[in-house]
Simulated assay, not measured.
Amino acid sequence: MKKSQKTVETLSRINLDGTELEYNLKRSSRSTISIMITNTGQVIVSCPLQTPFVYIEKLLFEKERWIVQKLDEIREKPSAIIKKSFNNGDLFYYLGKPYKLKLVENNITQKPKVRFEEELMVLEISETEDKDKIKSFLKNWYKSKAGELLVERIRIYSSLIGLSPKKVAIKEQKTRWGSCSSKGNINLNWKLIMSPLPVLDYVVIHELCHMKEMNHSGNFWGLVEAVMPDYKVYRKWLKENGCNLSIE
């Protein structure tokens, strides 16, 4: 049996853009070299075991502008993306607007319900101390609202564009806001219900246009722009704010 080679990890430094950058260097039996930047700003370089150090530094210098730009974007993002505790005051988004959670114990009705009062998302529930129950209900509530609205927007834009999907599924996708298969089936992420309506519409239009152009060519973006001339604004919003669309 062939013995697998271990991964060797070291912490290295390099001066980029006048600043000393610390990065994690991972050497393994892989055949290619890559640079990854995590959401927390950690730079990771993965490379084959025998890659010369001078080549690693050369690649980092070549990617200097990209690395600096990505790190700046991470620093500029709100640092207050705090894990939800499902207590009063937690921030939740609905159609692009932030609401503070207010828990109200209601033992009369067994079924939890959500209502809005100005800047508050009021959740009436029988057990306000049961955080797992609160999380589960809110997730299902969001999914239900997303299903209703996304199907409605698909219907509106399908009629406008002249393209109708064979099937629409509302899912929880880790890395995508939407997808379109070659069979004409469209998947949409339920978390879109937390974004402003024009952003949600942009994703719907994007996936519908993929039914005609299964790529990101100039023709594809031309189709998107014909329906939504300012789509770049909403595409940028999603890129910059998508990390806030979560109930975790």
Score class of each variant (00 low, 15 high):
229 P>D: 13
95 L>E: 13
199 V>C: 12
225 E>K: 15
171 K>C: 04
92 F>K: 02
137 F>P: 00
15 N>A: 13
31 S>H: 11
185 N>T: 12
117 E>C: 00
26 K>E: 14
148 E>C: 06
145 K>F: 06
7 T>G: 09
57 E>P: 05
199 V>Q: 00
116 F>K: 01
86 F>S: 04
24 N>R: 14
91 L>R: 14
33 I>P: 03
239 K>T: 03
24 N>V: 01
213 E>Y: 13
86 F>D: 07
81 I>V: 15
2 K>V: 15
209 C>Q: 09
194 M>A: 11
170 I>A: 00
106 N>T: 10
101 L>G: 01
109 T>I: 05
194 M>I: 03
19 T>C: 05
48 P>I: 13
77 K>R: 11
118 E>C: 08
181 S>A: 07
115 R>P: 01
221 W>I: 06
135 K>R: 12
224 V>S: 07
103 L>S: 12
159 S>C: 08
122 V>C: 11
161 I>Q: 05
80 A>L: 13
173 Q>G: 01
195 S>I: 05
118 E>N: 10
73 E>G: 07
201 D>F: 03
47 C>Q: 07
234 Y>A: 01
221 W>P: 02
171 K>Y: 07
73 E>Q: 15
180 C>N: 11
84 K>N: 10
53 F>Y: 14
221 W>Y: 15
158 S>V: 04
202 Y>I: 02
142 Y>Q: 03
210 H>T: 04
42 Q>W: 06
11 L>K: 11
119 E>A: 10
236 K>H: 12
143 K>W: 09
211 M>E: 06
90 D>Q: 06
37 I>G: 08
20 E>M: 08
11 L>Q: 12
232 K>H: 10
118 E>A: 13
157 Y>S: 03
219 N>F: 13
137 F>Y: 14
216 H>E: 14
204 V>R: 01
177 W>D: 02
98 P>S: 11
166 K>H: 10
71 L>I: 04
53 F>S: 12
195 S>K: 01
113 K>P: 00
42 Q>T: 06
118 E>D: 08
133 K>A: 11
93 Y>A: 03
44 I>D: 09
200 L>T: 04
